[in-house]
Design a protein around this nucleic acid. Structure first.
Lengths: 212, 212
DNA sequence: CGATAATTTAACCGCTTGGTAAAAGCTTAC
DNA sequence: GTAAGCTTTTACCAAGCGGTTAAATTATCG
């Protein structure tokens, strides 16, 4: 009898690596569109071009797929914040953080929506990650921002709410894409909307709406 | 035999009105937490304190409940934008729009999440409302904002992206509540976080991050 | 009260769901 | 080539799903 995948500590075969990747890719499509409870193993299997039992040979449960996906996404998703540099110029650091987050919303909307779905539904499967690694990283960067404000390099403001506002404004273009397109209409729904958004957000965060 | 509810054009009894309200209230809880596909009629029935067939006596399908809920929420949800006044002072109009949206995120988080769930999953049931009434309303208010910018009353900016950024920053506190709480920690997760958010957002939109 | 209509319940149905068992087919290393 | 392990398929299951039927119960009104 074949050794169960779960009992293994290391990858074994080329096929396993390929198929697992294929499944995760398909699962990202499905989960990001329907949420965890709204997605079925059959949907994922079909999207991955294999049968349900075959898929379950690689991942023992639906939750196992989801967890691995979330773990992977969380890492890459926080990367832009991680590179936030305390020694850099505040204005350009914030500016490029906004730009990077917006690029991610444009290039990886499924990842953003997977995450949004999870949070929206109470984050039952990632509460620990939020309260642990995420909070620690944000605390660290909030301290940097606070130091900049104290040094008079940027306006005094609550660093946490600044981070929230950057997250929300940028991720909005991935998570609420349908609404953005509907409101902008066909004329402005091309890829140019990300350019417009970038221009607007940079100006907003740098100068607000006051006449200059 | 009783006349089917669907055949009626008017409310008939006191009980019907009460029970329908009870069901919609329960459905708001359930749908806002699990999305449409992730919610079951049994869950809603249990939350409403009645049996599934009894619930289905008042609403013929799961979708009928959802549709009525969405219709109702959409109306109240857009109210703050509707009162946006072209003749008012730009700064105070924007400021109070932000405040009102934030109050709604605080007082009606379930409504916000219901809506977010729907959009996130591709808005299959409300595409028409988005492209119709919503777009028209936004177009109208965008014209107002553009006129203010032309008149030099506020900085020149893309009015659509301004509206998006107000929506996203305020609704973030309802939709991503779990994440906000996790990051802020217990110390700042009380109701005071809405005060902090309001202060931050008003300052951001009025002046940006530049030192004043 | 009594009749009529409104409401609730119990029993049920066909379909989908997450997951399993076991055997057949395929790869790979010797 | 062949034996061992790896992969895929076929057949299946119990529970959950949205929804129906019909009978029992309760409210309403003359």
């Amino acid at each position: 009898m074949a050794i169960s995948r779960a009992a293994k500590t290391q990858r074994r075969t080329r096929i396993q690596e390929e198929k697992e990747e294929l499944i995760l890719e398909a699962a990202l499509d499905v989960f990001s569109q329907n949420g965890f409870r709204g997605s079925t193993i059959d949907q994922i299997a079909e999207a991955a071009g294999m049968s349900k039992p075959n898929l379950l040979y690689y991942f023992r449960t639906k939750e196992a797929i989801h967890r691995q996906l979330i773990d992977r996404v969380l890492t890459t998703w926080l990367e832009p914040l991680r590179v936030f540099d305390a020694d850099g110029d505040p204005e350009s650091e914030i500016r490029s953080y906004i730009r990077r987050k917006l690029e991610m919303a444009r290039d990886f909307p499924r990842e953003s929506r997977l995450f949004a779905n999870e949070i929206l539904q109470g984050a039952p499967r990632i509460e620990d990650e939020l309260k642990g690694p995420l909070k620690e990283l944000v605390d660290e960067k909030a301290a940097v921002i606070r130091a900049w404000a104290r040094a008079g390099k940027i306006a005094r403001c609550d660093p946490y709410h600044l981070i929230f506002s950057i997250w929300s404004t940028t991720q909005h273009y991935a998570d609420f894409d349908v609404q953005v397109r509907a409101v902008l209409g066909q004329a402005h729904s091309g890829e140019g909307r990300f350019e417009d958004a970038a221009r607007f957000l940079e100006a907003l965060f740098m100068d607000g709406l006051r006449v200059r």
